[in-house]
């Protein structure tokens, strides 16, 4: 009973949450909470097999498929609250209340026979007892259900099946096609180049530079090119001057934060960083910056 009084409020709250949360994924999660709580209740009621099957089938398989679909629909798809059918909300409330009333009245009229008891039902172990029932008294229902499930699975496969009109391109075919294209049009047979990677900027909207310094068209997504939101690498290099203007001084002359501001500019050993005579001699860029000021 303890488990019931702990789980029942959780289940009711989660079930109400399914109705009131906006995001479909949250609703699915709350449904998972309800189902797992239900499974735990089965375990408490000494039905361990039902407990395992409830989690494996409902939580593990069916609800996971729900989640799949919801996730593919959109990352932040939330329910619209606009009423599409006029008067739907009022009608739904009325019919829901009527249904609830009928259920309450109907169930309160039912009387149950005396319970046989769990010991009787689980005689010889829960799993063997269940198997004995399934494969003797209910064997026809069991087989009919399995036939139904197989029909549904085959139906889904038939509906989703698409007749292949062209032969599938194998890896060897693809390689041959690429080489033929290379011979005919000179298109590079290898994979597309990655976008540009620079010390100050690393993004998909910056094209990579070819050895001659021009931007490689193939290195950026066609979508970005069509949108016109492609940056150019030389323009990014010019940005440095803009940053320097905003800072009011050159980055090299700002106080050392990481201790390495001058290190990248030179390949020579720096004898005594900080002494002005050495800074001019060892690092050409540092010297140039100082000359400007």
């Amino acid at each position: 009973m303890t488990a019931f009084w702990i789980l029942a409020p959780v289940m009711v709250l989660a079930a109400l949450g399914i109705l009131f949360v906006r995001k479909a994924v949250h609703a699915a999660l709350l449904l998972a909470v309800v189902m797992i709580s239900l499974a735990v209740l089965y375990a408490v009621l000494e039905a361990p097999f039902l407990f395992a099957v409830q989690i494996i089938v409902y939580t593990g398989a069916i609800l996971m498929l729900f989640l799949f679909v919801l996730m593919l629909v959109g990352v932040d798809a939330s329910d619209s609250v606009v009423e599409t059918i006029r008067g739907q909300r009022v009608l739904a409330t009325v019919f829901g209340l009527v249904l609830g009333l009928i259920l309450v009245i109907g169930i309160s009229q039912v009387t149950f026979g005396a319970a046989v008891g769990l010991d009787e039902a689980n005689n010889g172990g829960n799993v063997p007892a269940l198997a004995n029932l399934l494969f003797s008294k209910y064997v026809f229902a069991f087989e009919a259900t399995s036939a139904l499930l197989i029909t549904a699975a085959i139906g889904a496969m038939v509906l989703a099946h698409r007749e292949r009109l062209t032969p599938k391109e194998s890896q060897a075919d693809a390689a041959n096609r690429r080489m033929r294209e290379y011979a005919a049009t000179g298109r590079h047979p290898g994979p597309l180049p990655a976008p540009g990677v620079f010390a100050r900027h690393n993004a998909v909207d910056t094209p990579a530079l070819l050895p001659d310094g021009t931007a490689s068209e193939a290195s950026i997504s066609r979508v970005l090119a069509a949108r016109g939101s492609v940056r150019s690498a030389p323009a990014l290099a010019d940005d440095i001057e803009e940053v320097q203007r905003q800072l009011g001084q050159s980055p090299e002359q700002s106080p050392e934060v990481a201790g390495k501001s001058g290190a990248a500019a030179t390949t020579e050993e720096q004898d005594a960083p900080g002494s002005e005579a050495d800074a001019g001699a060892s690092s050409s860029t540092n010297g140039a910056e100082e000359d400007e000021q």
Binding site: F49, A52, F68, M71
Partner: peptide
């Protein structure tokens, strides 16, 4: 009596962590 099924069931809950983490 269903310990191995229990392991499978709990493992299927563990998948939720990965799916939800990704989403």
């Amino acid at each position: 009596p269903v310990a191995v099924l229990f392991v499978m069931a709990i493992a299927s809950i563990g998948i939720y962590g990965i799916v939800l983490g990704g989403w």
